[in-house]
Design a protein around this nucleic acid. Structure first.
Lengths: 341, 341
DNA sequence: AAAATATCCTAAAACATTTTAAATTTAAAA
DNA sequence: TTTTAAATTTAAAATGTTTTAGGATATTTT
C-alpha cells in the first residue's frame, strides 16, 4: 500500500500547514474559501482517510455509540435496533452492538470495551440482575446512558418502554370479552420487572372480571418459538385445560400455536392465543396472530434521540420514564371458546 | 467524575515511570514480578481504564473488526453472526456490525468508517453490484478481508459459503424422487452469483431427470416470510400448477406454506415445499420443513478464524474458495404428490 | 575487588489529529 | 501613504499510549 496519507502529507504537497488542512477539511470559517476547496480536492485525490482515533484522542469524542440487548436475533430487539439505526444514520454516529444473553459478566466486559474505545453513549436493555455498581461505572466515566425495554432498579436514567401492565390487560380483557373463563399465561419470567408487570396486569384483569387465577396456569420461561413450541404439551396436559392463552411475546405465541397444531388441535379455534409485540411476522402466522403492538419503532427512535440529546449536553432530567401506549391488533388467533369447553 | 486516571497517574502515585506501568500492565518480562503486581493492584484500585484509541494510535492495531451483511434481522445471517461472535469472543476483538440492505453507498460509507476507525479486518457478505473499486479501497488500505455467503467477481479474496449448486440439487432431486414432475423454484434473484448457481442447480437436476422446466415456474424475488406469503397466490394461480416448490430459503418457504394454508390447501400434502438454510425455526414450522442445511455455523467460524489468521500475518493464499457441503434434512413438508395432480 | 553479566527501569520519540494564541498578509479607512 | 482593522495562516502544545536504546543496580564470575 502506498505511503499513508495524513494531514501533513496534504499540507506539504500544497505548501500550507497541517493546521490549515485540518481546519479546511472541517469547513472552519477560519480558512479562505479558495484554500478550503484546494485542500478538499487534493485530499480526495490523494485518497486521504480521516483518522478518527487520532482525532478522538484530541477531542475526546469518538462518534461511537454502544447498544446492548439481550439477543439481537430476537426480532423484538431487531425491530428496535432497526429504528435506532435509522435515527443514528442521520447523525454520523457509528454504533457497536453486543448481546449479553442475560449474563452480567458478558455485559460488563462489553461496557468496559465501550469505555476503552471512548464511546460517547450507551443504549441498553440491561441483563437480568445487573448490579447497580456496573451502571455506576458508566456514570463515573461520564458515559450518557438510556435504557430500553428494561431498567435497573435504583438507577436513575431515562427509560423507554411499552406500558406492560396496560398492554397485557388489553390481551387478557379481549379473551375475557370473547367468553373465555380459563386463561393461561405463557412465557416470560418474574426475574424482570417487565415480567412481573405483565403477570400483575394479567392477574388483575382476571380478578376484575371475577375469574379465577390458578398457579399452574402460569408457565414461566418461554420467550422463543422453540420454547413456545415445547410449552404446548405442558399447556395441553393441564387438568381442566384453559381455552385461552395470553403469551409473553409473539415468538412464544407462534411456537405455541405450532405445538398446538402439531397435537392435532386448531389454534385460533380450539385454543385462542394472543401474542405480544406485533412483530412483522405476526400477521403472516397461521392463523394470523392477535397481538399487542408494543411500539418497537417508537422505543428505538425516542431512545436514540434522547441519547443524542444527552450527548450534546441537553441535559434531560434523569430517571424519566417514557411509556409507549400499546394497542391491541385483532387477527384470527382468537375467537369464542368452543361449546362445552 | 473524578480526574481521569491514566498511565502517568498510576506511575506518579507509585513513584515509577509511565513506561514501567505500561509494560507491567501488559505482562512484559521487562518488569520485575513485584513491580508488576504493585502496578496492577494500584491500577484496579484507582479505576484505571485502558485508552484503546491512544494505544491504537501508537500501535496501529485497533482490535476492531467490521462485519457487513445484507440484513442482520435475517436469521440466516443471524446464525452466521452468532458463530462469528463466539469465535471472536476468545480473541478480545470487538466487532462492529452494519447492514447494507444491498445498497452499495451504505456499504461504502460503512467501509469508510471502518478505515477511519483503523479496523483490523472485515468480514463481508457484499451488496449486489458492489464495484471492484470499493474492494480495492480496502486492500489499498491494508485491510484484511474475507467474504461470506457472497463474493465480488474479479476480487481475489477468501470466500466461505455453502455449495449452492449441490445443495439445491439435493432438494430438487428429493422432490423428483418422490414422484413430482412439475416443480417450481421460488425466491432468490439472478442478480447474485448465489442466485444464479442455485437456479442452475435446479435446472440441471430437472433436465437430468428428463423433466420440463418452464419459465413461469421461476418466481424471482422472495427472500422473506412476507414475500413468500405474497408469492403463494401467484404460485397457486399458475396454469397446470406445479405440485412441488423448491424455495430460495426457509423464510420464503415458511411464508409460502402460510400462504398455501391460508388459501385452504395443505402444505406438505397438497403441495410439497422445500426450504434452504435449515434455520432453527424450520423444525417447528407447520408442517416441519424439509430443507437444506447450509452450514451457517461453519461459515461463520471458518471465516472468523481465517480473518484472524490473516490479521496475524499468516498469509493464507488469496482467492481461496471454501465450500461447505450442504445436507438434506427431511421433515414433513414434502411427500408424494396427491393422486391425479 | 574488579570485570562481566543479568536484571530492572526510564527518557524520549512517535502516532495523527485539534485548537488557540499569535504572526502574517490583505483590505479598508484615514 | 500610513494606520487600523479584518482576514488568513501557522507554530506549538496537547491528547495517552508503546517502544527502544540505553542507564542504573544488582548479581555472578574471574
Amino acid at each position: 500500500m502506498a505511503q499513508k496519507v495524513k494531514l501533513s502529507t496534504i499540507g506539504e504537497s500544497l505548501g500550507v500547514s497541517t493546521a490549515t488542512v485540518s481546519l479546511a477539511l472541517r469547513d472552519s470559517p477560519l480558512v479562505a474559501e479558495a484554500t478550503r476547496e484546494r485542500v478538499k480536492a487534493h485530499a480526495l485525490e490523494m485518497g486521504y482517510i480521516y483518522n478518527r482515533r487520532a482525532a478522538s484522542l484530541r477531542t475526546s469524542k469518538s462518534g461511537i455509540l454502544g447498544v446492548v440487548v439481550h439477543d439481537i436475533m430476537n426480532p423484538f430487539y431487531g425491530e428496535i435496533l432497526r429504528s435506532i439505526e435509522m435515527e443514528l444514520d442521520r447523525s454520523r454516529q457509528t454504533f457497536i452492538l453486543s448481546n449479553h444473553y442475560d449474563r452480567v459478566e458478558k455485559q460488563r466486559d462489553f461496557l468496559e470495551t465501550l469505555m476503552q474505545l471512548g464511546a460517547d453513549g450507551v443504549i441498553m436493555s440491561p441483563a437480568i440482575d445487573t448490579p447497580k455498581e456496573d451502571m455506576d461505572l458508566l456514570t463515573q466515566n461520564g458515559l450518557p446512558t438510556v435504557f430500553i425495554a428494561r431498567s435497573v432498579p435504583g438507577v436513575d436514567l431515562p427509560v423507554f418502554r411499552g406500558d406492560d401492565k396496560f398492554g397485557i390487560s388489553l390481551a387478557t380483557n379481549h379473551l375475557i370479552s370473547l367468553g373465555h373463563k380459563r386463561i393461561a399465561m405463557i412465557g416470560g419470567t418474574d426475574e424482570t420487572s417487565t415480567g412481573r408487570d405483565r403477570y400483575e396486569g394479567y392477574v388483575s384483569a382476571m380478578r376484575k372480571a371475577g375469574l379465577e387465577v390458578k398457579d399452574e396456569w402460569r408457565i414461566q420461561g418461554p420467550r422463543t418459538k422453540a420454547a413456545g413450541f415445547e410449552a404446548a404439551s405442558q399447556f395441553l396436559a393441564l387438568p381442566d385445560r384453559p381455552t385461552g392463552a395470553v403469551c409473553w411475546n409473539d415468538l412464544a405465541a407462534i411456537g405455541l400455536m405450532s405445538g398446538i397444531a402439531r397435537a392435532g388441535l386448531r389454534p385460533g379455534i380450539d385454543i385462542s392465543v394472543t401474542g405480544y409485540d406485533d412483530l412483522e411476522e405476526a400477521s403472516i402466522a397461521t392463523p394470523a396472530l392477535t397481538t399487542v403492538w408494543n411500539g418497537q419503532p417508537e422505543v428505538g427512535r425516542l431512545a436514540a434521540r434522547a441519547l443524542l440529546d444527552r450527548i450534546e449536553g441537553k441535559h434531560t432530567p434523569d430517571g424519566d420514564l417514557t411509556l409507549i401506549k400499546p394497542e391491541l391488533h385483532l387477527r384470527q388467533s382468537t375467537s369464542r371458546p368452543v361449546e362445552g369447553a
